[in-house]
Nucleic acid binder design. Structure first.
Lengths: 356, 356
DNA sequence: GGTTCAAAATGAAACGTTTCCATGATACTA
DNA sequence: TAGTATCATGGAAACGTTTCATTTTGAACC
C-alpha cells in the first residue's frame, strides 16, 4: 500500500503553499483563479483526500454522530436508523452506533465514550428518564443532541410519538365495540411512551364517563417474556379482560402465546390491539389491529433537526424544537364485540365455527 | 464547559515530562514506581482522559470498526450487530455503521469512506459478489476485514452460514413427506447464500435419484415484493408446486399474502418452509417450519475473529479463517403430505374442515 | 514614478498525543 | 577502578491539517 499523499505533496506539486491548498479545499475566498485551477488539477491527479483525523485534530469536529439506543432488537430502532443514517451520510456525517442494553450504567459509559470521542452530535434514547445520573450526564453534553421519545426537563430538541393519541384511539375503538374490561400492557413507567399510553387509555375512558379497572393495567417492562406472564395472569383472573391493548412494540408474540395456551380465540373470546405494526401483526390469523407508529419518520425528522443544529453558526441556542409525530389506528381482524355475558362461552364458540 | 486537561497539564502537575505520563498511560515498562504512582494520582484527580483524536493522529489507529450491510431491514443484521457490538465495545472499539442500500455504487462510496476515516477493521456484507469494482475495492483494503456470508476469492477471514445444509434438510423433509413439485424462491444468485441454497436443494433431490423441476426454481431478489409476485406466478401455473421453500430471510409475508389470495390452506393445499426464523413464522397460524440460522452467532464469531486479527502484532498474515455456522430445521405446522393427485381439491378441502 | 491599498500568498504555530534519541544514574562485571 | 549494560527520564520531532500574522504582489491613483 503506497503512502497516501498529504496536503504538503499537493502544495509542492502545484508550487503553492500548504495554506493555499487548504483554502482551496475549504472554499475560502482569497485565492486566485489561476492557482485554484492548478491546485484542483493536482488534487484530482493525485487522488488526494484530506485526512479526516488531522482535520478533526485541528478543528475539533469529527463529523460523527453518536446514536444510543436501549436495544437494537426493538423494531423501532431499525426503522429509525434505516431512515436517519442515509440522511446523515449525505451530509458527510457518519453514524456511530451503540446499544445501551437497558442498563443505566452501560448508558452512562456510552455517553462518556461519545463525548470523549468528540461526537459532533447525539441521537439518544434512554432506558430510564428518572435516573439522576443519566440526567446529569445528558446535561453535561455540550454538542447538539436530539432526544427520541423521551421526556427530560432539558432544553434539547425532542421528537415524540403521539402515544397518547394512538392509545386513546385504540381504547375508544374497543369501548365503542362494547368492551368494558380492557387490559392495558403499559410497559415501564420510567419512560414517556408508557406513561402517555396509559394517559390515552384513561382519557378515552373518561371521555365516555367511564372508569377503567385498575387491576387490568399492568406496568412491567417491554419484554416479550413479561408480556407472556402478564397475559397469562390476566386471563386467569376471576373476571378476565375481554380485550387487551399492548403498549410495547415487541410484546405481541408473548401475548399470542398466552392466548393460544388458554385456548381462547381472537377475536371471538378476546380482542387485541398491538402497539405497533409488524409483519406478524399483518399476517397473523386473524390479522392484528395495530396502532401504527412512524419510527422511520422519527429517524428522518431527528436527522434533519440535528443537521439544522449542526449547521447553526451561532451557538446561541434558538428555542428547542419539539416535534410530535401522529399515530394511526389500523383496523384489522383482531377485535370484535365482547362475548355476551349470558351463555358466554358456548354462544361465541358457535359463532366462531360458523365464521369459517 | 471547562477546557479538558491535556497530557501536558498532567505532566506539569506531577512534575514529570509528558513522555513519562505517556509511558504510564500506555503501560510501558521503564518508569519508576514512585513516578507511576504520582502520575496516576494526578490523572485520577484531574479526571484526565487521553484525547482519542490526538492518539489516532499519532498512532494511525482509530479504534473504530466499520460495518457495511446491504440493508439493516434484514432481521439478520439486527441479530448480528446486536451480538457483535458489545464484544467490540468491551475491547475498546466502536462500531460505525453504514447501510449499503443494495447498491454497488453506494457500497463503493462507503468502503472508500471507511478507509479514508481509517477504520481499524471492517465487517462486510456486499450486495453483489460479482462486481469487479467491489472486488477491486475490497482487495485494496489494508486493514483486517471479516467477510460475512459472502464468497470472494480474497484471502480474508470469512464467516459463512451453512445455507446448503439447511436447504438440503428442508428439501429432504418435503421429499420425505411425498412432495415432488417443490418450488424454491432462491433469491439473487449474485450472493453466496442464494447459490448455496439452490445447491442444497438440488443435492437433496439428487440424493434420492430425483430431479427438481427447473421451472419451479425462481431466482430474483430477496425482497418481499418479489416474493409475492413469484408466489402468485407459481400458484397460477398449470401444475403448481405442492410446497415452497423460501430462500430469503424477509420474504415470508409476501408468500403468505399470495397464498391467502389464492385461497389455499397451509399445509393442506400447500406446504411452506421459511429460510429463517422470526416472530411471524413462530406465531402465524399455522406456525411455519423454518430453517433456523444463527445470525447472532455470526456476530459473535465475526467480532472475535476481528479482534484476534487486530491483536496480531505480526502483520504477516496467518492463513485466513473460514468458519461455517450450522443451520437447523425447526419443524412446525406448515408442512404436510401433498394433496393426493386424484380428486385433489375436494379431498383435501374436506380434510381441512375436519381438522378444525 | 512613487505611494497607497486590497487581494493573494507564504510560513509558522498549534491541536494532543507517541516515540525516538540522548543523557544521566545506577548496578553489574572483569 | 574502569568499563559496560540496564534502567529511568527529559526533550523534541512528528502525525496532517487549519488559521493567523505577516509579507508579497499588482493595480490604481495623483
Amino acid at each position: 500500500m503506497i503512502k497516501k499523499p498529504t496536503i504538503r505533496d499537493i502544495a509542492h506539486a502545484a508550487s503553492v503553499s500548504v495554506g493555499t491548498v487548504s483554502r482551496v479545499l475549504n472554499g475560502h475566498k482569497s485565492v486566485s483563479p489561476e492557482n485554484r485551477r492548478r491546485v484542483e488539477a493536482v488534487i484530482r491527479k493525485f487522488g488526494y483526500r484530506p485526512h479526516p483525523i488531522a482535520q478533526s485534530m485541528r478543528t475539533d469536529s469529527t463529523k460523527m454522530i453518536g446514536s444510543l439506543a436501549r436495544n437494537l432488537t426493538f423494531p423501532m430502532m431499525v426503522g429509525f436508523i434505516n431512515s436517519a443514517e442515509p440522511i446523515l451520510n449525505k451530509a458527510g456525517y457518519v453514524l456511530v452506533f451503540a446499544n445501551g442494553n437497558d442498563s443505566v450504567e452501560h448508558e452512562l459509559m456510552i455517553i462518556e465514550m461519545f463525548l470523549r470521542r468528540r461526537m459532533d452530535g447525539l441521537l439518544m434514547t434512554l432506558c430510564d428518564e428518572g435516573s439522576p445520573k443519566l440526567r446529569k450526564a445528558l446535561k453535561a453534553v455540550n454538542v447538539p443532541m436530539i432526544l427520541l421519545d423521551r421526556e427530560l426537563d432539558l432544553d434539547t430538541d425532542t421528537v415524540w410519538i403521539d402515544h397518547r393519541g394512538g392509545s386513546a384511539l385504540a381504547t375508544d375503538y374497543l369501548l365503542e365495540l362494547g368492551h368494558r374490561r380492557i387490559a392495558l400492557l403499559a410497559g415501564s413507567m420510567v419512560v414517556r411512551p408508557a406513561r402517555e399510553t396509559e394517559a390515552g387509555f384513561r382519557g378515552a375512558y373518561a371521555a365516555r364517563g367511564l372508569i377503567p379497572a385498575e387491576q387490568l393495567i399492568v406496568r412491567s417492562d417491554f419484554m416479550v417474556a413479561s408480556a407472556y406472564r402478564s397475559t397469562t395472569d390476566l386471563l386467569a383472573m376471576e373476571s378476565p379482560p375481554s380485550a387487551i391493548i399492548i403498549g410495547g412494540t415487541m410484546m405481541l408474540p408473548g401475548v399470542l402465546r398466552a392466548i393460544n395456551e388458554a385456548h381462547l380465540r381472537i377475536p371471538e373470546d378476546i380482542s387485541i390491539i398491538n402497539g405497533c405494526d409488524s409483519d406478524l401483526a399483518e399476517f397473523a390469523t386473524p390479522s392484528i389491529t395495530v396502532i401504527r407508529k412512524d419510527f422511520a419518520g422519527m429517524g428522518t425528522v431527528a436527522a434533519q433537526l440535528l443537521l439544522e443544529r449542526l449547521g447553526e453558526t451561532q451557538p446561541k441556542k434558538s428555542k428547542p424544537h419539539r416535534i410530535i409525530l401522529p399515530t394511526e389506528l389500523i383496523v384489522r381482524q383482531s377485535c370484535a364485540a365482547p362475548p355476551t355475558v349470558a351463555g358466554n362461552k358456548t354462544a361465541t364458540r358457535r359463532a366462531a365455527v360458523r365464521r369459517r
